[in-house]
Design a protein around this nucleic acid. Structure first.
Lengths: 339, 339
DNA sequence: TTGAAAGCGCTAACAC
DNA sequence: GTGTTAGCGCTTTCAA
């Protein structure tokens, strides 16, 4: 298994210097065809693989990318990771996975560790990152190419790739409006997450510009995780004039709403229409199927790494924000309000 | 952000030699209390973090663990990864994530790369690994502590941690039997996966020992992924005497069976009872809820890393196979056959 | 107990 | 075009 064979042995075996071997490996300098052939032969014969740790030490950068995400167990994130990993594999880069649980302390710890590993890049779905002293507070941490995925800290000035959350919110609002709903509520996610905020903004502003005012008690707060939507849904349904349509701003919460509805003997969509956000696989499995905003985590992850790759080659690229398109997937959880 | 401060600067700042600094960092030799204090002071003052790459080069081993899994996008695996990652975090180890798509070629490529990174350990959910020349074919690859999770290659002689798949199969068989079913079918997974094989074995042998013969056309083959169960279910339901109970040997396939049933206007559990395996989150969401065998991916991952940690300390530990307990979770997808 | 120095495997600057 | 060599930051003998 090719362990322990070093560049020095290749050099000896090929009868050349280590410098030349290094050059043919990296294609760095003009190497004569004869030497090139001999080296390649020796590499093949001995089954040599350059030691990436030594290389990393020398070049002050390892061919690894850290993905710092909230929780791989949350069903939206695996596809993001997979999107990045596929492209990483094509480029011979490794993915180091870090779960922060949205804890800025854990996130900061990981960030520091990753910097000390001098890796090639950082793909991060930030927890919040607006606390002082947080490595993300101003600019990229320690000169490592860094990109915020899915959402961004308030003060972040670097690359960002997100879904077009505001547009997603608008899409939902328009769909409710077109279905002739007027009692329309939202369960929004935590405001400090920019994606949650944007969804809410897009949604509410679209309602407003259609002349529909949304009362405060139609704006509920959920935690973006499972069970986050349950209590919010219960409060909404206990209102004296409960909404006929609910936008749960992610699918996990929408699932909760469906459950809460069922628990109350209410029917979706007849009594209450529901729309989610994410288009997780489960959204197709619920009865009724969940109408939801589709965003591709896979594309997000892949685009993120792609941009990072570009920045690794050209560190001085101007920071860029990319918004990925979203679309509404119609399933069975919306219908006009019943008289 | 503590970049670029090296052990040498600590040494100078503390007025001691680099060797002494190293010793206090690693607690390796008896260091005088005076020097110890001065070094710790300097470390705190300058915000020093040892460079893990340099350390890795010197010691021929980096504090990283590779997790080589089929696909993080398959809903069972994230919890396995998370279980390992949590323990890794506690021990200051990093997780490198590799998706093989069950492709032995990709798996072998990753294995080789990981060896060249000289990492501390390998947690692998093997694709198959019985092909000749595959690094897993005989024993651990290149002296790196390696453990097979969830399933094992035929010839693997090292550590293994799996769920008690055979027992899971038996549980399901017994449940069907107790519900007075006699026309009982199974959709098994790919035979080369030991977990799939064991589930099938446990299931069928339990039926047999209860005097129930399972005809060949009641044993269907699925691919263990989504859609893998659909065609199998269709064939089963098209039989002249279709089964009244189906064991889909993972939840993804069980979901397919539910869908196929619905498409035919058949009711679960009244027309056909269904049991899955895994107890994914979705199993609680389907209508009816899916009765399934619970196995904890989180525990599997955590136990895997725990064992690896032990082996890192004591490489000569005798190989061990650990079977984690499973249990049947009763939901609504099973009832006695209707007359 | 402490310091000096070799060397992990590699790249890159320099000399020829 | 090719070889020699310093040195990335650290651990770990070995001497003192």
């Amino acid at each position: 298994m090719s362990v322990n064979v070093t560049i020095k042995e290749i050099a000896k075996h090929a009868g050349v210097s280590v410098g030349s071997v290094s050059h043919v490996i990296n294609g760095s300098a003009g190497v004569g065809p004869d030497i090139k052939a001999r080296v390649e032969r020796a590499i093949a014969d001995l089954g040599y693989t350059p030691n990436p740790v030594a290389r990393g030490l020398r070049q002050q950068r390892t061919r690894m990318i850290a993905m710092i995400i909230p929780d791989i167990t949350n069903p939206y994130f695996p596809s993001v990771v997979r999107g990045a990993e596929d492209l990483a594999f094509e480029h011979g880069l490794q993915i180091v996975l870090c779960n922060t649980d949205n804890d800025p302390v854990k996130e900061a710890a990981y960030l520091r560790t990753m910097v000390s590993y001098s890796l090639s890049g950082l793909l991060i779905i930030p927890s919040v990152g607006d606390e002082q002293n947080h490595p993300l507070h101003d600019g990229r941490p320690s000169g490592i190419p860094t990109l915020c995925l899915d959402r961004k800290p308030m003060h972040w000035g670097g690359d960002v790739i997100v879904s077009d959350n505001a547009e997603g919110g608008r899409l939902v609002a328009r769909h409710f409006l077109q279905s002739r709903h007027t009692r329309i509520a939202i369960i929004r996610g935590p405001d400090q997450f920019s994606n949650a905020f944007d969804r809410q903004q897009g949604f509410l502003s679209e309602l407003t510009s259609s002349g529909l005012h949304t009362p405060d008690d139609y704006i509920e707060q959920g935690a973006f995780d499972i069970d986050g939507g349950r209590r919010a849904a219960q409060r909404l349904l206990s209102l004296s004039t409960p909404p006929t349509a609910i936008f749960a701003s992610n699918d996990l919460m929408a699932l909760d709403v469906l459950t809460a509805l069922e628990a109350r003997g209410l029917s979706c969509p007849n009594d209450v229409s529901v729309v989610g956000f994410d288009n997780l696989d489960v959204a197709a499995i619920t009865r009724p199927g969940l109408t939801t905003v589709d965003q591709s985590g896979y594309t997000l992850g892949r685009a993120g790494l792609s941009r990072l790759l570009a920045r690794m080659d050209a560190p001085d690229l101007a920071p860029e924000t990319l918004q990925l398109p979203v679309r509404l997937v119609h399933r069975g959880s919306v219908c006009p309000p019943q008289p």
